[in-house]
Computed example of a mutant assay.
Amino acid sequence: MGSDGALVDHEAGLERDAFDAHCDHLLLIDKAAGDAVVGVYRLLQRAGAEAAGQFYSESEYDLAPLLKSGRNLLELGRSCLDPAYRGGAAMHHLWQGLAQYVEANEIEVLFGVASFHGTDAEALAEPLSLLYHRHRAPEGLRPRAVNYQPMDLMPAEEIDRRRAMLQVPALIKAYLRLGGFVGDGAYVDHAFNTIDVCLIMDTERMCSARKSIYSREVAE
């Protein structure tokens, strides 16, 4: 999407950073396609963040509310699917693996940044305002953007929810369906050509129906 950075290799189609060595990497492998890696999720626990010097999201958000909560945290990042596997069961398989990881490690709060394409906040005024008015995290779990881009760009009564949701990326929609929230303010990342929001999901707040969606087994 036009992103760039010191460790972005456009020719090889690769992106990496200094956090990779401190993370667990959840891989989705298609055995029918010669064991091709077709999906990935990067998982960073507190111990890994301490070894790395911080959580990845701390470059964009003040995570003090989460860090002070005493809860067992897991930062999610680098979610990516091969284009040929998007729109099918692949993402569900990744999330099934994630659910098993969360249970095995007794994770209480999931968080991470997710992106809208582009850096023009006004062009995304309606979806950002929808997130602000309808999906803000509880104050005790609400990180704040360090370079604060307001999300309250439209009055709530002027938002067309259906139209706004059409502009919300699929990954953010999935977190919202599972009971996820967003932090306070967005972050404009010019290097990666995105506007980022911080997503938070308290596993205790997930209702039983959403837990079922999150962790149900898929027939292989």
Rank of each mutant, 00 (worst) to 15 (best):
Y148K: 07
D152W: 10
P155M: 01
V113Y: 00
G97L: 02
R144I: 09
V102Y: 08
L166H: 12
A174L: 11
V168E: 06
V113G: 08
L130Y: 10
D160A: 12
P143M: 03
Q100A: 15
M151R: 09
S115P: 07
Q149F: 01
M151E: 04
E103W: 14
G112D: 02
Y132W: 15
S115H: 06
Y101N: 02
V168I: 15
R134V: 00
P155L: 01
L171D: 02
E103I: 10
H92R: 14
V146L: 14
V168D: 07
P138K: 07
A123H: 02
L141H: 02
S129G: 10
E106H: 15
E106K: 15
A174Q: 08
V109M: 05
F116A: 12
L153V: 12
A164Q: 09
G183Q: 03
P127S: 13
G185K: 01
P127I: 07
P138H: 04
G183I: 01
L110R: 04
G179L: 00
L171P: 07
Q149A: 11
S129T: 06
E106V: 13
V182Y: 06
P143V: 02
V113C: 14
T119R: 06
A186P: 03
Y148A: 10
E122M: 14
M151W: 06
P138W: 01
H135L: 02
E106I: 06
V113K: 01
A99E: 10
A104F: 14
L171T: 00
E157V: 10
G183W: 00
Y132K: 04
M154P: 14
P155A: 05
D120M: 11
G97E: 02
R163W: 08
R161E: 15
E108N: 11
A99Q: 09
A164P: 09
A186T: 08
G185V: 04
F111K: 04
Q167H: 14
A137W: 04
R161L: 13
R134Y: 10
H135W: 08
H135T: 03
H93T: 09
Q96T: 09
V182M: 09
R162W: 11
I172W: 00
P143R: 02
A164F: 13
G183H: 02
W95K: 03
R134P: 03
V182G: 05
A121K: 11
M165I: 04
T119D: 07
F181T: 09
P138G: 05
R144G: 05
F181H: 15
N147E: 10
E108S: 08
D152E: 13
